[in-house]
Each structure stands twice: as C-alpha cells, then as structure tokens.
Amino acid sequence: MSGSTTERGLGWRHQQDVESLRRRHVEGTACWWCERPMFKDPARNFDGKTLEGDHSEARSRGGRKADRLMHSTCNRQRGDGSKDELRPAVTGVWPPPAGAPAVAMVELTGPPEPRAHVLYWG
C-alpha cells in the first residue's frame, strides 16, 4: 500500500500516536516481529529505515491505535497479521543484513510444514 498516511487511512491521530511511541522508545528494545534491536536512528536498524507504528490488533481486524514500534520491513511483512505465527521471533528465520539480496535460499530439513510461506525481506 503506497501513499501518505492520510491516503492510507492513517491521519493526524495515527501520526501523533507514532510520534509518542518514538519519544518513549528505549534504544535497543527488541522488535516484536524479529527480535532485533530497534533504534531511533534509521542507520542503526538492520533495514536502514525509520521505525514505524504497528497496530497489535491489525487494522483489518478492527485495530484503531498504533501501540508499538517495529522495523519498517517487519511491519510490511506482518501486513494484516495473518502471518504472525511465521514471524522470525517464533520461527528463527531472520532477515538478512542490509544490502543482502531480497530473496534468500533456505535449506529445509525434515518434512515440509503444512503451511509454508516466504516472507519478502526487501
């Protein structure tokens, strides 16, 4: 989804919520999605991007307030929350370092999982 926050249905109130989260952020706090440290300075984040506000109850499921910060890439991967059980903090499959190819090959061992997904790291 592209466009401004207002065009995406995230207007002034959302922007204020996210700014409040950023002001209160403790440097190095682990991201809920990937468990990597989060920093106010985008250059220190694994994806080199600014932290974004996330709705723990996805907007598609009625969530109205951004109540936590996540890396931009992690927030994009989470999307509507339907893949929460596939987050790296649970699966142990981590995002590649900044500058690495967006698609990574992973060797699977054992029987395939009944629900296999590929997360976009770009």
Rank of each mutant, 00 (worst) to 15 (best):
D80N: 03
E35K: 14
R24T: 00
A66K: 13
M1Q: 08
V106F: 08
E113V: 12
G92L: 15
H55Y: 07
H117C: 09
H14A: 02
R24F: 00
L108Y: 13
E19I: 01
P95R: 05
D80G: 01
G11K: 06
W33V: 07
S72W: 10
V106M: 12
E7F: 07
S72L: 12
T29F: 03
S72Y: 02
V118C: 06
H14I: 06
L69V: 01
W121F: 09
E27M: 08
P37R: 06
L108V: 07
R68A: 04
A100H: 13
K83L: 14
P95Y: 08
H14L: 05
Q77F: 10
F46G: 13
T50K: 11
Q16E: 04
A100E: 05
V118F: 05
V26K: 13
W12P: 15
G11E: 11
V106W: 09
R68K: 10
E19V: 04
L10P: 01
M38E: 03
N75A: 11
G53Y: 09
D80R: 01
Q77A: 09
P111R: 09
S20H: 03
P114A: 09
G99I: 12
M105H: 06
K49C: 15
G11I: 14
Q15D: 03
L86C: 14
P37T: 08
P112A: 11
L21R: 01
M38N: 05
T5Q: 03
E85M: 14
R22L: 00
S82R: 05
P95G: 11
R23W: 00
C34H: 02
S60M: 05
K49D: 08
A116D: 05
G48Q: 09
R8C: 13
G110W: 04
W94H: 10
D54L: 09
S20W: 05
R36F: 04
R24P: 01
D67E: 03
C31L: 04
P114F: 11
G79T: 02
N75T: 06
T6K: 09
S60H: 01
W121V: 15
S2F: 14
G53D: 10
P88G: 04
E113H: 14
V103L: 11
K65W: 02
M1K: 12
E85T: 12
A102W: 08
H25S: 02
R13V: 10
A58L: 07
P37A: 15
M38Y: 03
W33L: 11
D67W: 00
N75Q: 06
T73V: 14
A66S: 15
H55L: 08
S2D: 12
Q77S: 14
R24L: 00
P96F: 00
T5E: 05
F39R: 06
R87G: 02
R36G: 04
R115S: 02
S20F: 03
R59M: 04
S60C: 10
D41E: 10
A43Y: 10
T73H: 04
R87W: 05
T50S: 07
V106T: 08
S4I: 05
G9D: 11
E57C: 13
V118E: 04
G28T: 07
